[in-house]
Nucleic acid binder design. Sequence first.
RNA 1: GGGCGCUUAGCUCAGCGGUAGAGCGCUUCGUUUACACCGAAGAUGCCGGGGGUUCGAAUCCCUCAGCGCCCA
Length: 899
Amino acid sequence: MLDKTLTPGSFETRLYEGWERSGAFACHPESGAPPFTIMIPPPNVTGSLHMGHALTFTIQDTLVRWRRMQGRDALWQPGTDHAGIATQMVVERLLASEGRQDRRGMGRAAFLDRVWQWKAESGGTITKQLRRLGASLDWPRERFTMDEGLSKAVLEVFVTLHRQGLIYRDRRLVNWDPKLLTAISDLEVESREVKGHLWHLRYPVEGAPGEFITVATTRPETMLGDTAVAVHPTDARYAALVGRRVILPLVGRAIPVVADEYSDPEKGTGAVKITPAHDFNDFEVGRRHGVAMPTVLDPEARVILAEIEAELRAVAGVADPDFVRSLAGQDRFAARKAIVARLEELGLLEKIEPHTHQVPHGDRGGVPIEPRLTWQWYCDAATLAKPCIEAVEDGRMRFVPKQWENTFFAWMRDIQPWCISRQLWWGHQIPAWYAPDGTIFVEKTEAEARAAARAKFGHDVTLTRDEDVLDTWFSSALWPFSTLGWPERTAEVARYYPGDVLVTGFDIIFFWVARMMMMGQHFMGDVPFRDIYIHGLVRDERGQKMSKSKGNVMDPLELIDAYGADALRFTICALTGPGRDVKLGRKRVEDHRGFITKIWNAARFLEMNGVAPDAGFDPATAKTPLARWILDAANRAVAEATAALEAYRFDEYAAACYRFVWNGFCDWFIEFAKPVLNGPDGAEKAEVKGAAQHVLGTILRLLHPAIPFVTEELWDRFGYGPECSLIRAPWPEAVPVAGAEAAREELDWVVRLVSEVRAVRSEVNVPPSVTTPLLVRDAAPESLARAGRWIEAIRRLGRVTEITPLDGQVPKGVAQAVLGEATVMLPLEGVIDVPAERARLAKARGTAEGEAKKIAAKLGNADFVARAPEEVVEENRERLAAARAEIARLDAALARIAD
RNA sequence: GGGCGCUUAGCUCAGCGGUAGAGCGCUUCGUUUACACCGAAGAUGCCGGGGGUUCGAAUCCCUCAGCGCCCA
């Protein structure tokens, strides 16, 4: 017997282990079944399961389980990425907390050993947590981006792209994180609004004592590296100054005033200082005008004078080399303070305005990034992006929802060179070796590099390997094929590439989607996946983004403990509409748990009544209207659910299942079945039980992708199959049902009758204890026959004693309802609240009247009748007739209780 | 500044040319052999404003407003 209450915790772990142990999650490269592949976007190895993961992995698991049931050979590839910066930070913090030597103290090799040790102990927490969610990943195939095989793929790709000229070394301005001391990508930079100031500085014009040009800046400390002042070419205020020079205060260097459209006459003073080595826009201006680009901040963003020292010059009242020298080694913010103070003393600070602006911050380190001119490795993203853009344009790849294509195109068409080197230790070390003369040898191994060097120089030279590692996304970009064994030509590569769908959030389109496309197109000659399903973000009930600082994060594991994994998963499916964020609160999960419980209780009722799996039951031979009706309804639910999943409409899938199970199967079928189940054994009872077990089996299969645990538990407990077999059961399909149309008409009529009786009773305040006969007037013979066939159910659900036709005198004190051609009456003299009944009928009449008027107006419009499709006109005529007939019957009913 | 999205019942959202819907909440009633994580009934809408297209607009177009996100 099933327990009275559902306790998901009592079977979730057992079932998951059962599935995993029996190999239910495994793909079968040798099988003849068509494959279905989803590559997990590998979570960060330092990560732990949060709500965003719960969302994305629920969706992926639902798709995978569904396709697997459809007979596809499903591969859901698990794994994690090595998260260069994040992991290195975690381990460095660990060392600090243990009071150990820091990274530099212990040296690269020892540090990397420590990271691997950390990974073995604590890495991949998330893979254990994913099991709690029920994720059916093919675990024995789990991969890590630093694995030997995947690292081999990285070498292959790097060396190949380098030979093709698509990877190169260059000295450009990069986003430099002065805290983590590494370059980071544009995508790892986030703008934060900062309340700062706009400092207006006076730069004296050379050879014109007392004449100044005032520049406005948010970063006065960078003025040490200014090499120009820019004004807009059409700005009359400064036209005379263009081509002249100004004296850079403090430094004493003369710098030109240039005309450049970058300067915005509306902003600040209309004149801007140009510091090419510390600002991306200034860099471009500097390049256009061929000015010098001295660096004045070191890797830790402290003032460094090496590149400007030679030009320091004392100018009375303007420049002071000693002061500038005193700044050396000072942090950029301390230097800012000192510089502003000194300029003020010199009378060169015109004013300070409060100014709120966007300041780029490193998303990991959290400090403002400092653009710096450095040598880095770059990947020619624009070239790699081209075929990807084409693939989306011609439909080889499809975004769902489609609107994300715009975002994708906008980014891909304006893509910048991808800086792929990072000044970290944890990651794939760049396979580049430098000869003493600076010649670079890019090879897969040191031996090959040495051989190449020998070939070039004719003798051995000392080679030094590049110390930097590659951006983590470089290896993640190879994931769709490196996990399958590439560059080896494995059976898996041939079979599971390209994947069917990539499921991810829009925030990751550029990190993931774009880069996997580039590498997939280039090395595999084909897209990495066909569909890209973009879901929303998880937010709290109020629509706020979840964040630790706001304190509104929810822990999916805690919700699973409280309500079960199925409840969380079903909630997610139900709330995941297209292109919408998911507002999730505890209450939402609690609400949806009701549905899981409902299924459990319905199954428990059927079990109590001896309903058990019967493989011999053939739906096609069902004869009773009840069996035919529910089998037919199940067919429609199957069609709806399947169509919804095919369209990635998880909300519609959940809703279709919910409606069918709750409002169809539970509310009506089981209620109608009760009299039969309580009645004598026989053909009718056997058939109702047969239909019940058949439809329950359908429901369990239909819902398994979303709520795998309860469905599997019930499937096993009922004996539909052996332990843990639902996951392998076939996806339901429509079954032939004879006389479905007639069955639907019959049962729908009974449902309407019962509903009318209930509504009447409730509205005229008939106590539940009172039962009444049902008098039927003007009923067609078929209606009376139906009433007779369903008398038991009507008695029970409508609190009716008997049903009799009424021809003659209407008793006093009846409550009435119109049902099609018939009027049903409940004789309730003494019980009925007559004014309430009159009001009720009048209201019903009013509704019908309003309806009739609306339709009559429509039909009175000659244009409508002439231009609307014939079937629409006809439909409206029928509706008008029905409304008028109903008004007539309601008038008659009102007349009967007129006195 | 550019782009995208949203605005429908108290709340969360479906619907996207032809009868305005669901879930939750609310009100009333209810322990009838599954389920109170339940059952029955009920109330609640100028479908953001304005204009246009159409026989017909929540739905298509334009415009305005508000909110949100992304990019400068």
